[in-house]
Design a binder for these strands. Structure first.
Lengths: 68, 68
DNA sequence: TGAATATATACCATATCGGGATATTTATAT
DNA sequence: ATATAAATATCCCGATATGGTATATATTCA
């Protein structure tokens, strides 16, 4: 997950992101450390929040846009 | 998940797919009926198996290719 | 229709998840 | 340099979702 990188680029804290996604800071932390993986629903929420493709979030491509 | 559609297009059974992915036929069935969601690891395995983007698999785009 | 193949469901044990609380680390101000 | 605040990581736990085995149902087709 390229989450930490993306979040930092937007300059927001784990706490803010967590609140915006209706979850907890510790949950975000775990995603970033790789201790846990989000479910698909949460994964999509994160991608949408940052306006990036899921493939980009998962480091499967270097292009953040969704191929229309 | 656009799994059923993709699998049928390739003309393979749930059982064959399951075996190729080292899982069970019933697990595939559940993904297709929507009764359960795969974890991210399994999601990526499926996308790679069919050579489609995760976004396509998740019906977030109509284009199956990964934007490089 | 009967056998084979394909798909769905029931049940269960376990792993994984999210949450609250807390610890640790990092930044900031004085 | 130290105190305070902000940010991030970790511990513990209950609840839930997951995958597996076994089985039922549905579909294909000879």
């Amino acid at each position: 997950m390229r989450l930490k990188e993306i979040r930092k680029a937007k300059g927001i804290s784990q706490l803010k992101l967590a609140m915006d996604l209706n979850t907890n800071q510790n949950t975000i932390s775990r995603y970033e450390t790789g201790e846990r993986e989000p479910g698909i629903v949460e994964l999509i929420k994160i991608a949408d929040y940052f306006n990036v493709s899921v493939d980009y979030l998962l480091e499967r491509t270097d292009n953040p846009t969704i191929q229309k």
